[in-house]
């Protein structure tokens, strides 16, 4: 029993280590991609590491209270948890994580965990910009949740399962088994809402740097900020893995995971680099418009 737990803990650490580094590198790479789009050289790929180290070794820090202190912890716990409830690589013991403790619904709702923690931490800073950002973020989230939920319902109806592992298993055996091909409508709806989920342009109103200096974490500094940056990498990775598992056949090896998630992320970055920013109410209306209709269509297709 103890041995099992120790092995599982070891696997978990490996899995987390991989996803953290991958997430950070991915972030750095994408910053460079964005720079290339703008005709710049861009920052070094390892710049995220330096930033996190710097933030953690700052000499001073300020705290506004217990929740301010715990907010980043919640956030990172949310990111880690979300990742840990998703099987990252199909058939791999190391990367199976804790997928046995819950299905897709658990993952979808666990995302809220970090959001809530962050929002609470931001709230306790007493800075008005934080809740403004949070309000925008939550509003946008509730809107992009709709096409995503519909898409998930559609594929759950199609495959009669809610288990992520099961989804991946059912997509094995050829590229045409991927849900992106078996259920393109659901995939389209989900991929549009993924744009909102990754909060890049055009859905970056939450952090609007000049208007509400980066919104929720406006008071966060030093190690708090460092923790948030770490989470950004992990959480991003988790979301990418989730979408890869759901719509793009999952991954049977770390390599295919890297390739697939890279491409999925690249898509959001390219969209982000090409569009200006929506206002909060505009993005709500956007998500509840065409993407929702596509989602409904995907569901209705399953009903008939």
């Amino acid at each position: 029993m103890m041995k099992d737990i120790a092995i599982k803990a070891g696997y978990t650490l490996i899995s987390l280590f991989v996803i953290t580094n991958y997430g950070l590198l991915l972030g750095g790479t994408m910053a460079r991609v964005r720079a290339k789009v703008q005709g710049r050289i861009g920052q070094p790929v390892w710049q995220p590491y330096i930033d996190i180290i710097k933030n953690n070794v700052l000499r001073t820090g300020i705290s506004h209270g217990v929740m301010f202190y715990l907010g980043p912890v919640f956030r990172l716990a949310g990111g880690l948890g979300t990742y840990l409830f998703i099987p990252a690589v199909y058939g791999s013991l190391v990367f199976a994580n804790f997928a046995f403790s819950g299905d897709l619904l658990l993952v979808m709702y666990f995302i809220f965990f970090g959001q809530l923690g962050m929002a609470l931490g931001a709230g306790q800073s007493g800075h008005p910009y934080s809740p403004i950002g949070v309000a925008r973020g939550l509003a946008q989230m509730s809107a992009f949740e709709v096409p995503f939920a519909l898409s998930v319902i559609a594929i759950a109806a199609q495959y009669q399962t809610l288990s992520v592992t099961e989804f991946v298993a059912l997509q094995q055996g050829g590229i045409l088994n991927w849900i992106v091909f078996t259920n393109p409508l659901a995939t389209i709806a989900a991929m549009i809402s993924f744009l909102g989920m990754s909060m890049g342009n055009p859905f970056s109103i939450v952090i609007a740097p000049q208007e509400i200096p980066i919104g929720p974490p406006t008071e966060m500094q030093s190690s708090f900020l460092g923790m948030l940056q770490t989470n950004r990498a992990i959480f991003n990775g988790a979301k990418l893995v989730l979408f890869m598992n759901l719509y793009f056949g999952g991954a049977t090896s770390v390599l295919s995971m890297v390739v697939k998630t890279f491409l999925i992320y690249l898509y959001t970055v390219i969209v982000g680099a090409s569009f200006p920013r929506f206002r909060a109410d505009q993005s709500i209306r956007f998500f509840l418009g065409i993407p929702t209709l596509i989602g409904i269509a995907a569901v209705v297709v399953q009903m008939i």
Binding site: L76, F98, G102, L105, S163, G226, M227
Partner: peptide
């Protein structure tokens, strides 16, 4: 369709919560 283990979720959550908290306390 699916499954849910409230017990495991609780432990995992506690685990992933303790880890960053310890890190933050250290830093």
């Amino acid at each position: 369709l699916g499954y849910w283990n409230g017990n495991a979720v609780m432990y995992v959550t506690i685990g992933v919560f303790i880890f960053p908290l310890a890190w933050l306390l250290l830093m």
